[in-house]
Amino acid sequence: MTGALEVVRPGPFTTVQDPGRFGYLRYGVPPSGPMDPFALEAGNLLVANPRDAAALEVALGACILRFREEAEVALTGADLEASLEGEPAPRWESFAVHPGQSLAFTRARRGVWAYLAVAGGILVDPVLGSRATYTRARLGGLGGRTLARGDVVPTGTPAAPPSKARARLEGPHPVYARDAEVRVILGPDLDRFTEEAVAVLLSEPYRVDPRSDRMGYRLDGPSLRLRRGADIRTDAVTRGTVQVSSDGRPIVLLADRPATGGYARIATVIAADVWKVAQLPTGGRLSFLSVGIEEAQAEAGRAEARLEALEASLRRGS
């Protein structure tokens, strides 16, 4: 550990996240990880970290961090009106910060979750192979919790000395809108729902309810009728799974989803689109479009290719 970051103002839900903790679902330990995986991994690449390094995930704003040492950083994900010593801080490119400087996230202008990647990564101790924070089980991150005022977050030694040249993700950058249309794969519990319920899900818009968090977003909108009860025998769920409880209300499970659930699953948002749900603010409008597995996986391939291209271009540039 070399440099360190001091938390002056923690913000409502700032945590340490890496891509997630895999391999322990059968013990009931979910992966957690970032709400917007592309933004986290792109941020890491921009500061020459491995893609799976840990970064800070900042929600909504009201967060101030002070750097104790020289560092190279990158901001990705939501536009939280970040500023460095009062000057607007760039997004999707690396920049240098000096000892004593403060980075402030003000308010959510577009999107909800922003990432601060620091060259060398956030070096909290890994738990079960990952630094991702899962607050419900007080696991990973800094003491398994959200950051608090006065915390000192350890950062690692950068792989290379800070470069004068800025690394940048060429556009178009992800658009964080108040409306999103996301693609889903229907099922696996379609037999639980009326045909009308599936038609409603795929035609009516839903709004993100305020009772939403890293585990999942509750949606307001027309209720989805079940043929028989909403309870299924407890079964696996995943990121993006749309569960429907007995009141007919859908919930989209997100980063802190549990390993298993007991509600009927009408659909799952495709991996390449889950971030669009996560970045919707409260009141944001969401609509669903059914696609086939081939289209979904081709889209996942394109997101992966973009990160690989960024990695290759930065390697050439250094």
Partner: peptide, 10 residues
């Protein structure tokens, strides 16, 4: 076998 999204099979 049924897909649970595009990254899991039930």
């Amino acid at each position: 076998l049924r897909p649970l999204g595009d990254a899991a099979i039930r």
